[in-house]
Amino acid sequence: MPVNPPGAPTLSGDLLTIHRLLQTPTQIRRRLRTLADMRFVADQILTQRLRSSGGAVLYEVSEPIINARPVEAVPPGSEYPRAVTAEGAAAVAAVSKWGQSTRLTDERIKRHIYPGDELDRVLRKVVNSVVTKVDAVAIAAVASAVTATIDADTYGGAWNGTTPNILRTIEAAKAAILDLDMGYNPDTILMSSNKYAIMASDEKVAALRRREATDNPIYSGSIDVIDGLKVVVAPASRLPSDDVWVLDSQELGGMADEADVDPGYTVDQMAVQVQSARVAQNDAWDIWGRRITVPVVMEPGAGIRIVDTIDP
């Protein structure tokens, strides 16, 4: 006796699948993990993880690495001279809740051949909006705290000029941080997409790279590391000025996130909390995301800004 094969998937079936997914926070979290390109610049330059208490975080600024009392020669049988441990200036910062909501209608779900793609698109926009805002706030905090500068004109001229020396300028910036003798170790360079394009195509930089290697930007289209510094690129719109920052990301500061997750939310490694709710009378779902955080710059001396990198 012939057996009828099961029927093909229908739009209504897909709609029910999406409804179940939207009602399951763990499934939404798995969806968030696929948004690998939505990385926070803030978390790459402010790598320390702080925890807020009562909606604020208490921290120290520019904590000295040596005590004020100098080390002395100690005669046999004598006590060691006692020094008071030096502390930085106390500061406090209040966390803010940065978030946004959007609506996904049943019509948008069932009229798409792959309803899951429509959900991914909505989640991507929500997450990207939160990323953009938090990054702008964090980078502005870094730019406000890091006041030390070095002029590119002193080391060959603007990067887009006729005699640039990008590597020498970066080395000079690293040296300025190291010479503070505060234990800083520059490991990151932050720049706009335009500055990155100039650096990646610079002939002097290209001449110093390995030839015919698969990690050459002529093949890969990217430079991950230069002069021992991890390259972090941000859209110019997120930067307060089109300068270049050299930083010690381990010492500069961190993001103070409110760790507790309220009922109904799901959160992944990006620290963006997401929740959805059915709006039955509108045949739709509300989807919103948030990040409760504040950027904290603890060691302003761990960074320096390279100015005059572009000639008008």
Rank of each mutant, 00 (worst) to 15 (best):
G289T: 02
T214N: 13
I287R: 03
L229A: 14
E251S: 15
D262G: 12
R278N: 10
G289F: 03
V274Y: 08
T214P: 00
N194M: 01
V205P: 00
P295L: 07
I223K: 01
D202H: 07
E299M: 11
Q281S: 12
W288G: 06
D283K: 04
S220P: 00
V296L: 11
K195H: 14
W285I: 02
R238M: 09
W288I: 01
I198W: 04
M199V: 07
V233D: 06
G228L: 06
S193W: 01
S222Y: 04
V296Y: 07
S249N: 04
S237E: 13
G221L: 02
S237K: 14
D227A: 11
M191R: 00
D243M: 09
N194A: 13
Q281P: 03
P263S: 15
I226V: 10
V274S: 12
S192I: 00
S193H: 15
A200E: 07
V231Q: 06
T266S: 12
V272G: 08
W285R: 01
V272E: 02
M191S: 08
G253P: 02
W285T: 03
P295M: 07
P300A: 13
L229N: 10
V272T: 02
A280D: 13
Y219D: 05
V272Y: 00
E212S: 11
S220N: 05
A200V: 05
K195I: 05
L208P: 01
K230W: 09
M255F: 05
R211A: 15
S220I: 01
I218E: 15
W285V: 03
G301F: 03
P217W: 05
K204E: 14
E212A: 11
Q250T: 14
D215I: 00
A200T: 08
G221Q: 08
K230P: 00
D202P: 00
I189Y: 02
A206M: 14
A200D: 03
I292H: 01
